[in-house]
Amino acid sequence: MIVAVLSGKGGTGKTLVSVNLASISEESTYIDCDVEEPNGHLFFKPKAVVSEDVLVKYPEVDNALCNGCRKCVDFCKFNAIAYIKDKLLIFKEICHSCGGCMIVCPKNALREEDRKIGEIKRGLSGQINVNIGILNPGEASGVPIINGLLKDVKNYRGNIFIDCPPGSACTVMESIKDADYCLLVAEPTLFGVHNLEMVFNLVNLFKKPHGVLINKWINDDNPVTEFCKEKGIMILEKIPFDNNLGKINSNGKIAVKEGNYYKKIFSSILEKLYEEVQDERTINP
């Protein structure tokens, strides 16, 4: 099964949850799609790492061929091209690699070039396949990196856990596309419920089966539990507020390896995920 772990904001526990679920599975793949600040590798410390560059296309101009018609300038919806003093000025970082400027150019004055925006690292941590996407600072969009990470997601081994970027923007949509199930991690606060609503709306839009995992739970009198009741969302599990868990996590250790108590919590989440995905496959084969 492919499980995407997401949340409306950072720091709710996406990485904690996906790293521990991957660790407790017999066979698993962990994919860090939080390409702006991937941190799953801090826990897994993968070995035998292989890197590949992620390249995107952008246009270069041959000013000798350009006749100044500005068709490319008018075409670009991202305004990545300006025409100043009889010359094209191209803003590579703004270009979204659609290739439209090259199609509309009547003089074939534009050609495609590659540039590196980041990389993908793949390695092993024990039996776990670890895949990490890294976007270079200052780049506009991590989507091409996530595409590269998830291109062969269906061929990956065992349970697949996708550690999504925070929020509900394009990079998150790209990350959940192939997921069988979306696990929404939320904090039981007013702020938490606001962010939960964002991702809840997103997974509904994509018609993805989903459930909520409350992290840092104290008691059932909280806005997230209320929201889930009101919307009829299943709460898969509650991870109690726990200083020790925070300590384990901030030391880069994997909680399920630090004692039976945490093992039980994450085993229970994994069992419920199996059930949910199984049910879903029976209803919508």
Partner: peptide, 30 residues
């Protein structure tokens, strides 16, 4: 109302109007 790159497009407009100076409270890098 551009989705992105508004500064570049607005700057193009400034250039196309052949003005000699722009007076503005602030201006982005692009």
């Amino acid at each position: 109302d551009s989705r992105g790159g508004a500064g570049i497009k607005a700057a193009q407009l400034v250039v196309d109007n052949k003005v000699d100076g722009l007076i503005t409270p602030r201006c982005g890098q692009n």
